[in-house]
Amino acid sequence: MEIRQIRYFLAVQESGSFTKAAEKMFVTQPALSAAVKSLEEELGVSLLRRSHKRVTLTPAGLRFRDRAFAILAECSAAKSELMNEQDQKQLRIGVLDTLNTPPINQLLHEFHTTYPEILIHLHSGSKDELANKLGQNKVDMLLTSFADEVSSETTLPLYQERFQLMVSRQHPLANRASVRLADLHGLPFVLRKNCEVLNEGKRVFLAEQAQPHITCRTDNDSWALTMVRNNLAAAILAETVIEEGTVSIPIVDFGLVRTVGCLWRNHCDQETVPVFTAFAAQNSWRGLARIS
């Protein structure tokens, strides 16, 4: 079954004549008649009653007419959707798994509000996964973290944030204004395997001779937050991470911070990347260590 056959059939039923339908569709009458006949043979039914006065629909043709209109409508909608998507400006952003935080969510929301004509595709993953996607041109840019403040033609540092202890409001340390790593010794603890400062964090723990009791190892921050919220363990997360029913406490002898920013490829030809980075550079990072 071909679209042209359906169009020819509908033209015939509308005009009541193969000749008039052929004129309307700018084809020869024999070609149109052959196409409709082929459609009937494929369907195994007669769709039209042919007479010298007027061509009319058979009961099967009457039922097929509604289907034919629906098929053409779907084809038209699909074509329109694809054309609109092709014409629409797009931006593929790789977002680090651990950056599902209010500042980044607010940035994405405000950018979409300001530039609704740009279609955003988000891809989440670890640092290695995102680096591979950027290198393979599967994303146009990254929202990621850097171990230190960086400066290059393809990076835009946005802000810095500390790592803090997150515990349930029922946790024994919940009312403390600050803690030391030694306070975590022997306490249930979630080890976040996707944490950007995992190795450095382990080194600091060893240096301070603090050995929390690791009861959960996970590469999914949602599970880590669930453990904390249910008072099953504590975790160390970036200060902008928010979870209902928990509190974040500064750690006085844990000075690790992360720099959050944008990263893109050299000679990036996606015109929406500089639009996004310029917008991000002007965004207000209230309460955070803004990098200018």
Rank of each mutant, 00 (worst) to 15 (best):
Q170A: 12
Q29T: 10
E81Y: 07
Q282P: 00
L10I: 02
L181M: 14
K89N: 11
L263F: 02
N84F: 10
R203S: 13
P188E: 12
D140S: 09
L134N: 14
R67W: 10
V45M: 06
D148Y: 15
P103I: 10
R92F: 14
E81N: 07
S168M: 03
F26P: 00
S15P: 02
F64D: 01
R286L: 06
T56N: 10
V36Y: 05
W223G: 05
G287F: 11
L165W: 09
E243R: 06
A34L: 14
L232T: 01
L142W: 12
L99V: 06
L96C: 09
G245T: 04
G186R: 09
V36E: 09
R176E: 15
I251T: 01
S292L: 08
E243P: 06
R49D: 04
E200P: 04
R65P: 03
T154G: 03
A281L: 08
A234S: 12
V95R: 11
N137W: 10
N266G: 13
S284Y: 13
Y159R: 14
S145T: 15
E200I: 07
L10D: 00
T215E: 12
S46A: 05
D221Q: 15
L237N: 08
A289L: 11
R192E: 07
P103W: 09
C216I: 14
A174E: 11
L47Q: 00
P116L: 08
V257F: 05
T58Q: 06
E117I: 04
K53R: 11
E40L: 05
L187G: 09
F189N: 07
N220E: 11
M25P: 00
N283M: 13
W223Q: 14
A224N: 03
E149Q: 13
M1R: 04
A35H: 08
M1E: 10
T113N: 13
D221W: 09
L232W: 08
V228S: 04
A68R: 01
L82R: 13
G186P: 05
I6N: 01
S76C: 06
V139R: 00
T101G: 10
L237D: 05
T101R: 13
C195Y: 02
I251Y: 04
V190I: 05
L48Q: 03
G125M: 04
L184T: 13
E117S: 15
L191P: 02
I120V: 15
H171Y: 12
K20A: 03
Q270L: 08
R258T: 11
K37V: 02
P250S: 08
L43T: 03
G261D: 01
V247N: 01
R49W: 04
V150M: 12
R217Y: 12
V241F: 02
N84A: 15
L43I: 01
L122A: 05
I104E: 11
K53Q: 06
Y8T: 03
L206I: 07
A210P: 04
F69Y: 14
